[in-house]
Design a protein around this nucleic acid. Structure first.
Lengths: 215, 215
DNA sequence: TCTGATTTCGGGGCAACCCTAATTTTCTCC
DNA sequence: GGAGAAAATTAGGGTTGCCCCGAAATCAGA
């Protein structure tokens, strides 16, 4: 009884590479390839694979939406998300959509093979780095998720964040908000903890992603 | 006489996949793998490969800077750039750095194999989609050079800028570049003066605009 | 009213920032 | 091949600001 796999990734070279690796496994069988989310949904229906390796970011329809649609039709299928290193912010949404696993592309093939066999056994597999994000969100509930869809920053924090990202110094910000510099520093500390960013560089990047300032 | 290849890509799964595909070719031999630009430079020196498959976007040191450094040491080496679909803006800089080929990752292995054999024969290979970009830039020369790296930053300054924008501190950068912290400070000062940016926020934004790091 | 989130503030250590200036290496041009 | 320019390196010394520790006051809702 072999495992039937559907690949969904918009990079052909990645698809071919993963297929080549998987074909070295006796009990694994690649039954199809999708270039975008929409065709992944269609092929999942037509082929009924056991496992789908789903890139998170794809044109036309991203992996999160595709996963939701596929599992609504056929909850038996296991979806393993594949993402770039800096796409970790999609973790919670992908898992909420029903993914059984989450791998960063910076993982070994050995890890991928293990993930496939684990989800087949109805277990969940997360890359070590991803585990941290999930545990953090679990321990300190999703108020503090680094997901762009759930940035739970207070008004004050957004004000401070924007000014920081615009290049103002703490005393300048304190002055323009009429509070002590120490207050602004606390806000910055809380911001860095909330969005899991390191230093002004990280804060600035987050502010750009959130549209609080422009690059 | 087989072709020796060095892989430089920060995604292990991609490296393993491409390696697996290349190993199916009789006359091609993968001699090493680099996870970032810096180790690519080192491995290029140690292994002296015939061809380097170089991801454009990598942490620590990107493919453009790495290519520049590698070809300065050993112009005999052929570099083929691999990029994501939306990294096309780096085409001109990568070619200017001396790359012999430019492939988008959404290409077939067949295409990759052909590219490798062409650059070995001292020819240039560009993905069809990339050709368009090059021709367009050729027809309408860079009157207003909106391209990244158009700024008069030196290689070293670009290295430092990327590391700063990735959130590293001055002592960390000094350590990883094996120079004094004062040297890094000087580079940072010069950078801020050159690009008229204030503080780490300004430097980070500039690095994002120039594609040295991602938001 | 009590809990918890928000906003506020302080001290100490270290890093960023600004200035000037020197040496060595590398490149370019004649 | 040698002169000059540009780049890369290091340094001293001072001011300011960032960052991490904690903690008090304010305010909202259970």
């Amino acid at each position: 009884m072999s495992i039937n796999i559907l690949l969904a990734d918009d990079h052909q070279l990645t698809r071919e590479g993963v297929r080549s690796l998987l074909e070295g496994e006796e009990d694994i069988n690649v039954v199809g390839e999708a270039l975008d989310g929409r065709s992944a949904v269609r092929l999942a229906r037509e082929l009924g694979p056991d496992v789908i390796l789903m890139d998170v970011c794809m044109p036309d329809m991203n992996g999160i939406v595709a996963t939701t649609l596929i599992l609504a039709e056929n909850p038996r299928i296991k979806v393993i998300a594949l993402s770039m290193l800096d796409d970790r912010r999609f973790v919670s949404n992908m898992l909420r959509a029903g993914a059984s696993g989450y791998l960063v592309k910076d993982c070994s093939f050995k890890e991928l093979a293990r993930a496939i066999r684990m989800v087949i056994a109805n277990r969940t597999y997360l890359s070590p780095g991803i585990m941290d994000v999930v545990v953090k969100d679990y321990v300190r509930p999703p108020a503090y998720s680094d997901s762009p869809y759930s940035s739970n920053l207070t008004i004050r924090e957004k004000e401070v964040l924007q000014l920081v990202a615009e290049g103002h110094s703490t005393p300048q910000i304190a002055n323009s908000l009429h509070v002590s510099a120490k207050t602004i520093e606390s806000h910055r500390q809380n911001l860095m903890a909330k969005i899991n960013a390191k230093g002004i560089a990280g804060l600035t990047k987050y502010a750009i992603r959130e549209g609080l300032t422009s690059a």
